[in-house]
Amino acid sequence: MRVEYINPFVEAAFNILREVLNAEITRGELYLKSASQPVLGVAAIVGLAGDVEGRVLFDMSRPTAIAIASAMNGEELSDLDDLGKATITELANMITAQAVTKLHDLGFKFDLTPPAIFTGDNMEVTDTEVEALIVPVNLEQGKIEINVAVRERA
């Protein structure tokens, strides 16, 4: 993954999560993953196109997703209902959009696809010929893994 792409995603995740959750967050060590990776239970995905091709996945457990959606809405949600899903989707959109804005400022041209959300057990994601950068973010509500898999367009 191109070095210049890393910081914008890390910074955007940090900024947005701290802002919307109004709490301290910490970042784990960044690392790379290849081939198939398990998905924790709830995954919001945003596609990227333009100078690159790829996608960003926001991966978290169901309880974490419910807790984050509850915190963002200021009300206790008992399940990941439509409001909860819309909230997580919006969170993914906000983080990716801010990262892409930063990248635009650096001269890279990216477009986003509308976000989608997947929920379920025993899911995994497979990227052929693209390794994923994992940005683990630790919150009061649990852990989010931001999984960025992009490559330069040939």
Partner: peptide
């Protein structure tokens, strides 16, 4: 690029 040479 940040890349592990053992990955595809």
């Amino acid at each position: 690029e940040y890349h592990d040479v053992l990955h595809s």
